[in-house]
Design a protein around this nucleic acid. Structure first.
Lengths: 119, 119
DNA sequence: CGAATCCGTAACCATGTGGTTGAATATCGC
DNA sequence: GCGATATTCAACCACATGGTTACGGATTCG
């Protein structure tokens, strides 16, 4: 069965469907906090448009905002991506139908299980 | 660097942002071909609306259509999901810092601390 | 204090989305 | 050929999206 937390996935997939928002997330992927202005700089749109994009990301729970003085400091919260990964992985057999990587996958599962056990 | 084939990911993420379309894909995940009517049956919308959903999935390359007689037979093509998986996996370290890619994460933390120190 | 900076909000516009209903097209069964 | 079936297409509607410009609210700097 393919599980589906509709609300989360709706918002997350929608947030990821725009290249500007994906690029912003990619920028934040190093874990460093950045201001709205810093995040908007690489893109050829107004600050207001960038602000809207960040609001979409925030609504999806993909970023968190910390207001410090007059600047809004933004950092990534990638936890919704875990659901995306889970959802997508459920289809892996559909695009990788051969058993070529079966060994690797089994190894992966063992390590994953061990890691979970050791946690 | 987080790679990004914009066009594919735009269309794919958008296609996945609607629960009905995700459910249709999930239905097709077993690899069995189904007619438009069969796919539309579980949902409380008109056939025309379902047809539109399928067109979105088709535009994203997530399904393929084979017209046989008067029925359109639809099957999954999950290959765009591979890109989604790749894109998402690049962020795994962001939500699973405990054991996934531990080395990378440690490096990340060092840089992060340095960045904070240098600020 | 006053000016500059960082950022959000409001109003606006063009276009897209998700839904409907109703008609058109093509095929199957009789 | 005729009626039923499967599906798309077209027109319409309410609303969301992505963009703009203009303004306002804090906050920092001089």
């Amino acid at each position: 069965m393919v599980t589906d937390s509709t609300d989360v996935l709706d918002a997350t997939f929608h947030a990821l469907s725009h290249p500007t928002r994906r690029a912003m997330l990619a920028t934040l992927a190093d874990g460093v906090e950045r201001s709205v202005g810093e995040l908007a700089a690489p893109f050829d749109v107004s600050l207001a448009a960038s602000s809207k994009h960040l609001k979409v990301l925030e609504a999806a729970g993909l970023i968190e905002r910390r207001v410090v003085g007059r600047t809004h400091s933004v950092r990534i919260d990638a936890s919704p991506l875990a659901e995306v990964a889970d959802w997508t992985e459920a289809f892996r057999a559909c695009w990788e139908p051969t058993f070529a990587r079966l060994d690797g996958v089994l190894e992966e599962m063992k390590r994953h299980r061990k890691a979970r056990r050791d946690r």
